[in-house]
Design a protein around this nucleic acid. Structure first.
Length: 747
DNA sequence: CAACTCACTTAGCAGAGTTCTA
DNA sequence: TAGAACTCTGCTAAGTGAGTTG
């Protein structure tokens, strides 16, 4: 997988923005007061950020350093240029990004209106427990509504259906209200004192995966052509391997060797003596059995599927929630990870190793002192039960591959996660008010004679300009060879005095998190270029580019500049500020809904490109694109047909005088043409959006880097329903933002 | 200060679930 | 109304960064 992906990355890399022009003083658009209904309860870490911020606009050397804004917009432009061919073909006129500065500073005057502090809604447990049933019925009613709407055009039962529709609507509204009611509006409450995450926490403990079911008698494993009955433990592991046989990674040497070693550990002495060579193992029947099972599951009847679903729901109901400070909260991952073969990302040295089954004896439980302690599965006991309210996790265990601790924590829509998320964006907003100074500082530091300082400055320049990750060092041989900023090595950059018409170009080529390739050619300021030359002096491939620098040095420096500032804050800041800016540049109030959404996606895309969030092109991409194109073509034909019909009708109406019937016909034809045009436009917009999105993943930035208040404010301003931008899960996660943000919010 | 531990965020993918289309 | 297309969710790996220890 990883390899494939990288190869794709290669291709993709060529489309990456190479020219990085500066947009303008994006920071000038600063009105940075929060416009939130209830910032009365301001986050502790936030203080009142925006006082006496010395902007030093103009006289700073930031000209070259401020790319953050320009680069992504440039990326969009580039994307658009790449796409021009198809665009022209489709005759779709697209918006271009102007190089001009954005409109002047928009002074958001919105004062933190003292919050209309609604009383905390005490949650009603019984109702929530029952959540599922009404939800289902709601869906059903929705469907019937649709159906009936269609029917009622032809049938005479209109009266009856009308009332039913009305009822359904009422039900829907009521349901929504109820949901609102039961939602914990934690953002309107006081925060706990430092370090305290909760006061009461009760849960059922994790859910364990089912025990291994031995193979049926008619399924056999063969070694060297001979039937071998394996011990239970060995058999289970053999089946793990058999299940993966379709993946190309089972052909990789590292994977096979790791697997074989670990598998033999599970064997009895006898088995170990016999089974010496993986190539002589025949997993054919096991594999076939597995495939049959998958197939059977797919072919289950509706009822069977429903039964499975209900059974799963029961598990969720029992284990999927906890009680936290009198509120029922959803747990994010309440299931213990099942055993299997480890498959890391990229060229992971431990791929193929056996991920062992976790027993209750491996699990630490964390819960409130006064809560009911979860009961371990029969015949078992927990490793430990603790009551530490300075952490957010409910259970943890140590995984055997890398010895890392795994946690069971709450869902993203929980208070604990939401509050932290909010805080994160507040820190990033604070950076916004300080970023000019910080940029000045590192630009000065670029001249420093002290090596650490100089390296720190260059690293910071990269982190700020390119949104690189910090790049903690990692143990060799423990994981795939990937790097971030501070861990860049000599072989990851190439310096070009001149390249493609630009001077001082740095060419990056390395594998980052998840072994995703980062490839980019970036013109940098002379001082950075010179420093890099210096850093590279007398170093060879394999040596660290920043040999005096670590993430911890860098972060210490940053936190001295601004409390709470770390390397990753730059990523958040630059992502969010880019979105806000791009939205301003790209959307007009007069656009129609589809165009607005396209613009939003483009702004989102600019961020995704900045953060290098890639995805493998969907397997069906080419096909679905072709289908869409075909649809567009046929719609075009329809349109020209409709047009000629309209002409005809007009002519007739003219020649034959003012027959009202003919006038009517003209009107009808006109409407048809218009409808056709609208549909065509919609499709073309859709095609453009999809094409541009081929290898870009928008989800990650949307979920983790973009301050939701920017999106919510934009929706309000543009009169776009929030659910066009966020799905249900996302709306839940960002409920705090949706609730408190007003139209004039500025990041 | 280096190595390690711990807690928490960020990440892409597979497969399930939902919607669209012929 | 099936099957294709698309979207969402769960899963779990892989980061970040603070704190601890020796």
């Amino acid at each position: 997988m990883g390899g494939e992906k990288n190869a794709k990355g290669d291709e993709k890399a060529k489309h990456k923005p190479t020219k990085l022009k500066r947009l303008s003083d994006h920071e000038s658009a600063a009105g940075d007061k929060a416009s939130t209904k209830n910032s009365a309860k301001s986050l502790k870490s936030t203080e009142k950020t925006h006082n006496g911020r010395s902007q030093m606009k103009g006289k700073t050397p930031k000209k070259d350093s401020v790319k953050t804004a320009s680069s992504p917009s440039e990326a969009v432009k580039q994307e658009q240029e790449d796409d021009d061919f198809t665009t022209k073909q489709r005759g779709l006129k697209r918006k271009r990004i102007k190089d001009e500065p954005m409109e002047g500073p928009s002074h958001s005057t919105a004062t933190p209106s003292s919050s209309s502090k609604r009383k905390r809604n005490q949650h009603r447990q019984e109702e929530e427990c029952d959540e599922e049933a009404p939800k289902k019925s709601k869906k059903k009613t929705e469907k019937t509504v649709k159906k009936e709407e269609g029917e009622h055009l032809i049938s005479k039962k209109a009266k009856k259906t009308k009332t039913e529709i009305e009822e359904a609507k009422q039900l829907k509204i009521k349901k929504k209200e109820e949901e609102e009611q039961s939602r914990w509006r934690w953002w309107e409450e006081e925060k706990y004192e430092d370090g305290v995450k909760w006061k009461f926490l009760e849960h059922k403990g994790p859910y364990f995966p089912p025990e291994y079911q031995p193979l049926p008698d008619n399924v056999h494993f063969y070694y060297d052509g001979k039937k071998v009955k394996l011990s239970l433990a060995a058999e289970e592991v053999a089946l793990f391997f058999a299940q993966m046989l379709d993946h190309e990674y089972t052909t990789k040497t590292v994977f096979r060797e790791n697997f074989f070693t670990d598998w033999r550990q599970e064997m009895t002495d006898e088995e170990r003596k016999l089974i010496q060579d993986l190539d002589k193992c025949d997993f054919g029947e096991l594999s076939a059995m597995h495939k049959a099972k998958v197939e059977a599951r797919k072919n289950m009847t509706k009822e069977e599927k429903l039964a499975v679903k209900e059974a799963n729901q029961l598990i969720v109901d029992e284990y999927g929630f906890c009680l936290l400070d009198q509120h029922k909260e959803r747990i994010g991952n309440f299931k213990i990870e099942p055993p299997g073969l480890f498959r890391g990302r990229g060229e992971h040295p431990k791929q193929g190793m056996l991920k062992k089954r976790i027993q209750p004896e491996d699990v630490i439980i964390n819960c409130g002192k006064e809560s009911c302690i979860p009961v371990p599965p029969a015949g078992h006991r927990w490793k430990k039960v603790q009551h530490d309210n300075s952490v957010t996790w409910l259970a943890s265990w140590t995984e055997n591959i890398q010895g890392l601790i795994k946690y069971i924590m709450l869902n993203a829509n929980s208070k604990l996660k939401g509050e932290k998320d909010w805080e994160k964006f507040e820190v990033a907003r604070k950076l916004k008010s300080r970023v000019d100074d910080i940029r000045n500082q590192y630009n000065k530091d670029l001249k420093s004679k002290e090596m650490v300082v100089r390296q720190r400055a260059v690293a910071l320049y990269f982190i700020d300009k390119l949104a690189l990750r910090a790049g903690n060092e990692k143990e060799e041989g423990e994981s795939a060879d990937t790097v971030g900023c501070c861990s860049l090595r000599v072989e990851h950059i190439t310096l070009h005095e001149k390249l493609e018409g630009n001077e001082c170009v740095v060419e990056f080529d390395f594998l980052g998190k998840d072994s995703i390739r980062y490839y980019n050619k970036v013109p940098v300021i002379r001082r950075v270029f010179k420093s890099l030359t210096l850093f590279l002096e007398s170093k060879k491939a394999g040596d660290d580019l920043f040999d005096r620098l670590t993430t911890s040095i860098l972060n210490k420096h940053l936190s001295a500049l601004m409390p709470g500032l770390t390397a990753k804050v730059f990523r958040t800041y630059n992502a969010s500020i880019t979105l806000q800016q791009q939205l301003k540049v790209l959307t007009n109030k007069s656009d129609n809904l589809a165009e607005k959404i396209l613009s939003y996606n483009r702004a989102n895309r600019a961020v995704a490109i900045l953060c290098n969030h890639q995805r493998a092109p969907p397997k069906t991409f080419d096909q679905s694109m072709a289908n869409l194109q075909a649809k567009i073509e046929s719609r075009k034909e329809q349109l020209s047909l409709a047009k000629s019909e309209l002409k005809e009708a007009k002519k007739e109406a003219k020649t034959k005088g003012s027959d009202p019937k003919l006038q009517q016909l003209v009107e009808r034809k006109k409407a048809a043409v218009q409808r056709c045009e609208e549909q065509l436009l919609k499709m073309e917009v859709q095609a453009t959006d999809r094409e541009e999105n081929k290898q870009i993943a928008l989800g990650t930035s949307k979920l983790n880097y973009l301050d939701p208040r920017i999106s919510v404010a934009w929706c309000k301003k543009m009169e776009v329903p929030v659910d066009k931008i966020y799905n249900k899960t996302q709306r839940d996660k960002f409920a705090w933002a949706i609730d408190m943000t007003e139209e004039d919010f500025e990041f």
